[in-house]
Amino acid sequence: MIFLELFYTFFIIGAFTIGGGYAMLPLIQDQVVNTHAWISAQEFTDIIAISQMTPGPIGINSATYIGYTVLSNSGASQFLCVLGSFTATAAVVLPSFLIVLGMCFALKKFSESTIYKGIMDGLKPTVAGLIGAAAVMLINTENFPDWKSWLLFGTAFLVHYFTKINVILIIIAAGIIGYFIY
């Protein structure tokens, strides 16, 4: 029964999220902490912190972790906990997967139309602005506590802008440097 509820809850969350994982978080909190009381507010805060720190989209990470925690809070076996995290993750992806796949087929028909191209003309620069906004909003005292973080930021910017060094290498190097300078 709890699996059905978990699936339904995350399916709805996935269906109504526009604007990425961060837009999803208040929805998840409302459902999982307030409506169903599956996990405590403290646990939710911890889960978000871990989701931001680990690789992967925030929405996937938090769904996986919450699915696991909900089952483990109800005293289920570890196997059922894993099944819980699978349920929540699949449910959060499924609605947008179906919608986006539908869009893919529709685009095949319309991608040459002047109207689609006209809308794309406006959306491309807008989305570039939204990406910039996401970066600007990440410039806070939590991510930039001191001059060392600004130096890391500046170096990474120059390296990524002017060289073709793989992004993964840049991230790994940043982690190693962080370990030694902090």
């Binding site: 990406i131 506590p145 973080s149 802008y161 940043a174």
Partner: peptide, 17 residues
């Protein structure tokens, strides 16, 4: 480790933009 990675991620978002 993540204190080192977080500011770098911001740079990685800005460049493609």
């Amino acid at each position: 480790i993540f204190k080192g990675i977080r500011p770098v991620v911001v740079a990685l978002i800005l460049v493609p933009m």
